[in-house]
Nucleic acid binder design. Structure first.
Length: 320
DNA sequence: AATCGAAGCAACCGCCGTCTC
DNA sequence: CGAGACGGCGGTTGCTTCGAT
């Protein structure tokens, strides 16, 4: 935490107008009282009118992260942890989006929790066991161990499951779910799907092993699959281009070792074709008919609609 | 009791998108 | 249409706490 301080120097006069550092109880009280009486508005005005020598941004942050009455205090519940891990596997470091799925939790809180606790736990789980059997928390094995096992056993084919109609089986616990062998033992694991089949995972994993950082990224950090769907230029049609980005390791690993295969054609290579036009309903099954997602997919935007996606994944079963 | 390092967390920084003039 | 203000977000910093030695 930071001590309250005022930066000296004339050149910083503008900055000096505002206090920085820790909030005093008096400041908290001023802001709280003002917010409860007047509600939210322009944060610069709030700071001024509440009699605070803080910039609007600082007030906003304090309110959102600490003073808001609906904030939930205390440790994260196991369910919350699972949801964070699950959502992070889907959308990465979009903390505000993740926070929006956890009532009473802030993006900052979740971000801190992830960086200090969950990330470490994931790492420990991976280093303790390349396969999921011996690690302490099977949920993380599900997330990060499964694909490692695939690579290890050179599975030659797998299907991508978008079967969201199964709402209670283990197959629905991941965006790509393993059915049949939820333990991800690799020896007989297969990703099952109704719709399309990935021709050669071996080819894909070979690609990763050639990534900067070498195969180590697979064995040390596990692998993470991240999908991005692009749909554009197909107005009025349900077909869309799918761009699949497969990356290895947690986020920081991804930053260090950008994925080699991150474009449309590369995924086509995975599939053994140059391009895949996929039906949304086929892709998402029932999920696509839940409303927002399918609608958003038809909008002709070049980026998929995250908001809608987040709304739609609420219809999916949670991790446990 | 003192020291040190890791963990946890509050808050700042800088960037980006949106809005307003 | 461009500039500036503002809000939101993710990344990062640095302080406090706590446990181990």
């Amino acid at each position: 935490m930071r001590k309250p301080e005022v930066v000296p120097g004339k050149e910083n006069a503008e900055k000096n107008k505002y206090r920085k550092g820790l909030w005093s109880p008096e400041e908290d009280e001023k802001l709280m009282r003002y917010m409860l009486n007047n509600g939210q508005g322009c944060w610069s005005d709030i700071a001024r009118n509440a009699g605070l020598q803080r910039c609007g941004k600082s007030c906003r942050l304090r309110w959102i992260n600490y003073l808001r009455p609906d904030l939930k205090r205390g440790a994260f519940s196991p369910q919350e942890e699972e949801l964070i891990v699950h959502l992070h596997s889907l959308i990465g470091n979009r903390w505000s989006q993740i926070a929006s799925r956890l009532p009473g939790r802030t993006d900052n809180e979740i971000k801190n929790f992830w960086n200090s606790t969950l990330k470490k736990r994931l790492k420990n789980n991976l280093s303790s066991s390349p396969y999921s059997h011996e690690s302490s928390d099977p949920r993380f094995d599900m997330m990060y161990g499964g694909i490692m096992a695939m690579q290890e056993h050179d599975i030659m084919s797998m299907n991508i499951s978008m079967d969201s109609s199964s709402t209670s089986s283990s197959s629905s616990q991941l965006p790509f779910s393993a059915t049949g062998h939820s333990s991800f033992d690799g020896s007989s694991m297969a990703f099952v799907d109704n719709n399309f089949q990935m021709a050669s995972v071996a080819e894909a994993t070979n690609g990763f092993l050639q990534a900067p950082g070498g195969g180590g990224c697979l064995t040390e950090m596990g692998m993470r699959m991240e999908e991005r769907f692009r749909y554009g230029g197909l107005e009025g049609e349900r077909s869309m281009e799918i761009e699949r980005e497969v990356v290895c390791g947690p986020h920081e690993e991804m930053m260090n070792h950008p994925p080699l295969m991150n474009n449309k054609s590369s995924f086509g290579q995975y599939l053994g074709t140059n391009e895949q036009n996929l039906n949304v309903e086929e892709m998402f099954g029932d999920m696509g008919s839940h409303g927002h997602l399918q609608d958003s997919l038809k909008m002709g935007s070049n980026e998929w609609d995250l908001e809608s996606f987040m709304q739609d994944i609420s219809s999916l079963p949670h991790f446990l």
